[in-house]
Design a protein around this nucleic acid. Structure first.
Lengths: 256, 256
DNA sequence: CAGTGGTCTAGACCACGTG
DNA sequence: ACGTGGTCTAGACCACTGC
């Protein structure tokens, strides 16, 4: 009856005890599934095993697996599809493309977008960048500059920092060849799934360089968006500072 | 066996039918609880009946009630407290005060805040304001101006529009007497619970008036936050345009 | 028709808060 | 000791998808 893969729940749980390592069964299952995702056992876009299959594997009831998957689906790590199965979330599908892009045209008409890479080189992490990415100062990083345009109007200027170790083969040439969302590229080429991100937003005045690249007046107000993006297990893998022109676009957000 | 309060689910659900009015039982229960909240059957901060009690009232199993409450809790309309009960969310408690305020000090040290009401008068809704609040042009509205300061540094300038009908007794005097979050006042004095909000964010240049009130230079970049706040049933009840000084503060957001 | 996730039930036991 | 929400199980049936 006792499954060696799971914490024995019949342990010191009789009142008065308080085993710090205790967590509900479904949380343990959730952690196990998360490990599978992290190890790449199931790739983005693929389906994971059915609930009954997982229940058999982990020696728990279908209901317990279901609750674990419910939470992972609520966090957008998995996507349930009735009649088909449960799939690993991806940035590669039309439906969820630009999942993390909150800039929206004021008139809601989606515009054609294009990305222009300005620069891509290797560097050593400064104190700030190392802290954000969980590295040590001086560790190798990749720095990336680009402009995103909508209907050929430059709108977003991005300055991106990535851990050099994780993104070994990332070169200017590879980026120039590639079309499509950057996070989709990270998924397929480097096995890195962006799962969550935190942003800090400010209004700033355009510098000379920013103004000329975005074709606005020096000193114009820009929306500065500093993002740290995380993969499975809350490991930071990207620091991105964006500057948005918000003349005909706005950043949309929902509060609950 | 058939409970007149609920849709008879034994109806034309045999394959080939597709009753448009169909929805899962737990969704019907959710809607019923939502109605209770909307009617004020249980007030913010109070507890709703226990799961077993609701199950008996609606003639369904506890599990079905539970799933309905789960969703309402996920939407922050209800708050579960193990061992105590399930409570109606409120803006009146320390834990969730300023639930909708995303502006955070850069150094994360919370600062003492104070609100200064500059103006409060009745007006007629313009086309834009009527559209945002679901009113007709010319309907009565209340317009409200205030400055929020942190550590006595003016940081947020708010311009607020409310439906005149709903907020009948809202006067400058009442506001001056009151201390605490505005949404808490709306709850206790007008029975309006803010449940959700959408925001549109831009960077703009400070006008003369804004600059002098916020003590910044004319033309300085400000974060403009336009908010529509909703009560139960997605009914809009507030339009708010805020201008934030983001020198030492930032708007924080999480993407999932 | 078989397999998947979605709904619903009934019952057991655990953990927490309060008397 | 009691009542609340939290976990876990087992089993039935429904709805959707694809062969």
């Amino acid at each position: 009856m006792s499954d060696s893969r799971l914490i024995d729940r019949k342990q010191p749980l009789g009142r008065a005890s308080h085993s710090a390592a205790f967590s509900p069964l479904y949380q343990q299952i959730k952690a196990l599934i998360l490990q599978g995702l992290d190890r790449g056992e199931w790739k983005p876009g693929e389906s994971i095993p059915s609930e009954l299959e997982l229940a058999a594997r982990f020696q728990v009831s279908q209901g317990t697996v279901r609750k674990a998957i419910d939470e992972l689906a609520a966090e957008n790590l998995l996507i349930r599809r009735q009649g088909k199965g449960t799939y690993v979330a991806t940035h590669n599908e039309a439906r969820v493309r630009y999942r993390f892009l909150r800039l929206t045209p004021d008139d809601a008409r989606p515009q054609p977008s294009s990305s222009q890479i300005l620069d891509c080189h290797r560097a050593k992490a400064t104190v700030e960048i190392a802290a954000a990415l969980g590295l040590r100062t001086g560790d190798a990083v990749v720095n990336l500059h680009r402009v995103l345009s909508f209907s050929d109007i430059p709108t977003i200027l991005d300055d991106i920092w990535l851990p050099g170790n994780t993104f070994k083969g990332l070169t200017l040439e590879a980026l120039l060849r590639y079309r499509g969302p950057m996070y989709a590229l990270f998924e397929t080429e480097f096995g890195i799934s962006m799962v969550r991100a935190d942003e800090k937003i400010r209004a700033v005045a355009a510098s000379d360089a920013q103004a000329s690249l975005l074709r606005v007046a020096v000193g114009s107000p820009l929306l500065q968006v500093e993002r740290i993006a995380y993969t499975y297990g809350d490991r930071p893998v990207e620091l991105r500072r964006g500057h948005y022109v918000t003349e005909r676009y706005h950043y949309r957000n929902s509060l609950n």
